[in-house]
């Protein structure tokens, strides 16, 4: 039996923020386990970013781009 436990930033927590009302310019989510859908939701809300780092972020797919 294999049990996977995900720690770290959760999709729900990321989506719960009203990013459209923030002044966020720079974000580094390298090596996080955020899902494709969470990132799609996030990028639809977040204002224009001037810096984004996503190495080893498997949820950052072509669809998100």
């Amino acid at each position: 039996m294999i049990v996977s436990i995900d720690l770290g930033i959760q999709d729900e927590a990321m989506i719960a923020v009203n990013w459209s009302s923030t002044k966020l310019l720079e974000l580094d989510i390298s090596s996080t386990e955020l899902s494709e859908q969470a990132l799609i939701d996030f990028f639809s809300l977040v204002p224009k970013l001037t810096y984004l780092a996503v190495p080893f972020c498997d949820g950052f797919t072509d669809k998100v781009i």
Partner: peptide, 9 residues
């Protein structure tokens, strides 16, 4: 938030 996620198997 680099490396704030961790997966344990």
């Amino acid at each position: 938030l680099q490396n704030t996620g961790e997966k344990y198997r």
